[in-house]
Simulated assay, not measured.
Amino acid sequence: MVSENCRRAPWMMLGALAGGLALVGLAFADSLVGVIIAWTLVQVSYNFAQGPLSAVMPDRVPLRRRGTFAALSGIGLMVGALGGQIVGSLFFNSLTAGYIVFAMFALVVLALFVVANPDYPSTKIEPEPFRLNEFLRTFWVSPLKHPDFFWAFTGRLLLYTGYFLVIGYQLFLLTDYFGVEHPEQVIPLLGILSLVGILISTVVSGPLSDRIGRRKPFVFASALVVTLALLLPWMWPDLTAWMIMTFVAGFGFGMFQAVDTALMSEVLPSAKSFAKDLGVVNIAATLPQTLAPGLAGAIVLLFGYAGLFPVAIILGILGALAVWPIKPTR
């Protein structure tokens, strides 16, 4: 149960509650300024919950099992992201109801997690004196002192940006690039295709990386698979090509998602502040999903829709190469 002695649970619940209220506000926003403010609050609030939630793995999972755990958490992440697209398409003509449903769903699910997985009490932990300057400095991780963390963070940032640069712009690609008249009828199928690819690769890659004790090969392989997938609709601008790409790219991204969290947990700068460090790591996953659509819009204005694919491919390759210098993991 949530109590005053819990370390993580209260922050998770407060983030979920604030995020739900922000989503409801977004549902009733009737101006661009209102949408921007509400969406900003949504991002801040849910990341408020995501930070302590991401600390569950180093809190409770042994090092040798983290690949499997990362695979399971990766499945949850992508089922949420892609399943949300599928369910969201059902509210295509009733956005207000959709926002309210998702707000309630997130709050209920996170509450169930907190109840079913009791938090560790903090009664035996002696808190250090709070100093604002020291607190703010903890969010800066020096690339010189902690190069492995820097490279892992950069790799995740680039790979996520490349993937969501294209996937996050899917609705406009369907309507304006592929000429689909009713995208709400196609998006559920695309979500299922991507989800199947992700589930297959995630279930296999996470436990396999634990067994062979290697993470990097899976990151490199995922970048290669996603790159090959993105080449298809770039060279063949057709809905069929996009469907094939959705499955193959999902397979590649699932491979990355299965091992990346485990890789990140092995290069954290400090054992004392891993929750904070994982909160910083979470920025590399959430920031691309927030900014990628805006970046995609700028690319489309400059180079057209076809310009999204080579940019995403380059970012994916650079993200994989960024993992190469990491020393503590193979």
Rank of each mutant, 00 (worst) to 15 (best):
T161N: 05
T123R: 14
G307A: 09
R214F: 05
T68Y: 07
N282E: 04
W11D: 03
Y163N: 15
G297K: 11
M243V: 05
G319Q: 01
D176A: 09
L107R: 01
S54Y: 08
G74L: 10
L26Q: 08
L95P: 01
L190P: 03
L72T: 06
P217S: 05
L53N: 14
M78H: 08
F102W: 02
V180R: 07
Y99W: 13
V323H: 10
L26A: 12
I326D: 11
G34Y: 00
P127R: 13
L77C: 09
G155K: 04
R211H: 13
A285H: 02
V141I: 15
R65W: 02
G20S: 06
L21Y: 03
Q43P: 00
A320L: 03
G168Q: 09
A152F: 07
G162F: 00
D30E: 12
G76H: 07
T246H: 00
A38M: 03
D176P: 06
W324E: 04
L159Y: 09
R8D: 11
G307K: 09
S31C: 04
G83N: 08
I244G: 06
D260F: 06
S270I: 08
F247S: 06
V267R: 08
I313C: 04
D30V: 01
F135Y: 15
G191Q: 02
I36Y: 09
F274T: 10
G162N: 00
L268M: 04
G197Q: 12
T68D: 01
L21P: 01
F172R: 14
Q257N: 15
L268I: 09
A55T: 03
C6R: 05
G162E: 04
W39I: 00
V225K: 02
W324L: 15
F135E: 12
K124Q: 12
F69S: 15
I167T: 12
A16M: 14
G179M: 13
F113G: 01
M13N: 11
K276P: 00
A258W: 13
L302F: 10
Y99P: 03
L158Q: 07
Q85F: 13
Y163K: 02
G250T: 13
M255H: 00
N47P: 11
I200C: 10
L132E: 04
V114A: 04
Y99H: 13
K272C: 00
V219Q: 05
P328W: 08
